[in-house]
Amino acid sequence: MKSALSSKPSDGIESAASGGAVVRGRGRPAGVTSPKTPLPDLTEKVSLDSHEPIGKQIFRALRQAIFAGEMAPGTPLSEKEVSDMFHVSRQPVREAFIKLVEAGVLQVLPQRGTFVKKISPRQVREGRFIREAIETAVARKAAVAITDAQLDELAANLREQKAASKLNDTAAFLALDEQFHFLIAQSIDCVAAWNTIQDIKAQMDRVRYLSLPEVSPLDLLIRQHARIVSALKAHDPALAEEAMRAHLREILISLHPIAERNPDWFEADEPERVPLAT
């Protein structure tokens, strides 16, 4: 599949990212600021000695920085600036950019540049709908197949979540939240289910960072996680499915107030013809 990033207009990418503001009305994404805000230092997120492909590491580092709000919507990115940061050639950076465009968190404006996209409320709801379909099915299977050792891992994860909550460490909490859902998929030997929804839930993850802890208190999310674990421990598929569904629908409650609090971070809403939460 040909991506906009594979075409030639890297000249436009570099000029927009090197400080020249793109005039509004000619395609400037809302949120682009002038002078340009420096990119966060992500060098510690990438290891040239790792066996993991460098492009994949750069993709993950940039995606996490976008999710965490370290790069606001409208932030320009250039291949040169990112490749200089990591001391690599432009090719792995280009590969990372292509994946970020496909994940819906970057946009390419030909002859203007590459920018962090605003959050699409509709894509948040669509991602949640697909994630719910997959993870409720995983929860049902896990309620039948999960072992005592795997339940112990989930219990330990919950304890760490509570510790992160007491410290108000949202970054640690969200990492543990990711691990929590991964462990449930792993319990049925279907990590592919978790891997499948990584890009699908990209817009959800950006909202999650904005929602903590004011709109979605950590203690509330921990109680929802605990309810899932209780259902798995009871080996009750219907209860596990219901608990997972209720947990994943929490974002529908927080989406509107988060968008109201952060209007510059969100695109105009486009309601679905068929509501996806019913």
Rank of each mutant, 00 (worst) to 15 (best):
S47D: 15
K80N: 02
A61G: 01
I54A: 10
P40C: 03
T37A: 15
I54N: 00
E81D: 05
S120Y: 07
S83T: 03
I66M: 11
V124R: 15
D49Q: 09
V116A: 13
P53V: 14
A21L: 14
A21M: 12
G113S: 08
G113H: 02
P40R: 04
S89L: 02
E102A: 09
Q91L: 05
G25T: 07
Q123W: 11
R122K: 14
L42M: 13
V82F: 02
K99T: 09
F97K: 09
Q111V: 03
D41H: 12
G20A: 12
E102S: 14
L109A: 04
F59R: 06
E102Q: 15
A96N: 10
G69Y: 05
S47W: 11
V124Q: 12
V32Y: 12
G104S: 05
G20M: 10
V101E: 13
A61K: 03
V88D: 00
L42S: 12
F115K: 05
P76L: 06
P121F: 08
L100H: 01
A103S: 14
P73T: 07
K56E: 12
E81Y: 00
Q107A: 04
P92C: 11
I119Y: 00
V82C: 05
F67C: 13
L109F: 10
P76Y: 02
S34G: 08
P38M: 08
A65F: 06
F59N: 01
T114A: 11
P40I: 05
A30P: 04
S120W: 11
